[in-house]
Design a protein around this nucleic acid. Structure first.
Lengths: 208, 208
DNA sequence: GTCTATATTCAGATAGAC
DNA sequence: GTCTATCTGAATATAGAC
């Protein structure tokens, strides 16, 4: 059961995430956030001590949500699921949070690089935890023989995150489904898009 | 021959690119830019009408430089060079401009998403021209049979740009050479990092 | 050309009415 | 809880000295 207070607080956070994502942190004014939340600027201080605290909460929620979504995508899969399927599920969960449900996550991705130093430092804990989730996913796949042993997994992880995260800069909903994007990314990741060698189909790989 | 005026102007632009890249556009003050250029804030107005005009010039130079570097990387290659080698050269040129010589280009990449609407609109011309360069590169490779015909090249291009551009967020010089990064990216792009099928070595592919 | 000084505008934050 | 009114500091931009 949500009190009026909880509802207003949530509306402010939603408005802040939306506006931060669109205009960046520094360029966003409290009046704009208040506008989007159908309030006046002064009223925000009933809920938040400062603009910076509002920022911190948006950042943390964005990272928390994508972390949870990806973890959940793994827990849904039966034990014994192939690593290729697991990674594809993680990719799809990350993209979905970023592009579909995710003003918080996309705000986090877009503005993190330009946030005050102390805020960034405090937020790193959550970022590192999320990175560890992916690191584990890739290492397990490599150990199981799904991934080549001669690749730098840390680099691959950063490249993959880049390919995914950059989509906030260009993705327009409706043009391409998120599922199709995830498929394409995993095709490239696992098999490459060069056509020299005949490529084993994903189905065959999954049951092998 | 550079007049004193030219030198000061260049110093201001350098300082602006550096500071915009580090802190973002809105969060950067003219006093900080002036500081980095060893001047006082008021003096900037001898050279630039406004902060926004300074921004536009930094953005344009950043895009111009990376465009030129990638075009040049292609012109250096003899006709008949394989498309795999061509694309790798383009990747390396893009990364080099972004990570090594490129406060202007990296500033462009980092802040473009959070720049005032009118500035963004005016800048799109240059962005589109650069995108066309890559589009051509990939389409020619596909037509020549170097790339699979069943992939969405527009999507691949965005994923690739994402993997490259995101490196401004994490790359620390000295840890990994840019050449090695380009190699790894092209390995993933062309052959994938799954290890089901034996992968043809890049050398073989180049002369085939 | 660059400085200092300052006008002006505006955003973050606070106080108190309702 | 939310508003209006206001304080305060800071940042863009200008003016004029040197």
């Amino acid at each position: 059961m949500q009190s009026k207070s909880d509802i207003s607080r949530a509306k402010i956070l939603d408005a802040a995430a939306l506006t931060f994502r669109q205009k960046g942190y520094a360029a966003t004014t409290l009046a704009e956030i208040a506008d989007a939340a159908q309030m006046k600027a002064g009223s925000l201080y009933y809920y938040f001590e400062s603009k910076e605290q509002l920022l911190e909460e948006v950042l943390d929620m964005g990272m928390h949500r994508v972390h949870e979504a990806v973890a959940e995508s793994q827990n849904r899969l039966p034990t014994g699921t192939s690593h290729e399927i697991r990674i594809k599920a993680a990719v799809e969960a990350h993209l979905t949070m970023l592009l579909k449900h995710g003003d918080y996550t996309s705000a986090n991705i877009r503005i993190f690089g330009q946030v005050p130093e102390d805020v960034r430092r405090r937020h790193l804990r959550l970022r590192n935890a999320y990175a560890a989730l992916w690191r584990g996913l890739l290492i397990r796949a490599q150990k199981a023989g799904t991934l080549r042993t001669d690749v730098d997994l840390a680099l691959i992880r950063m490249l993959l995150m880049g390919a995914l995260n950059w989509s906030v800069e260009w993705y327009k909903p409706g043009k391409k489904s998120i599922r199709a994007m995830a498929d394409h990314i995993c095709l490239m990741l696992f098999h490459g898009i060069g056509h020299e060698e005949p490529v084993q189909s994903p189905e065959d790989a999954a049951v092998s």
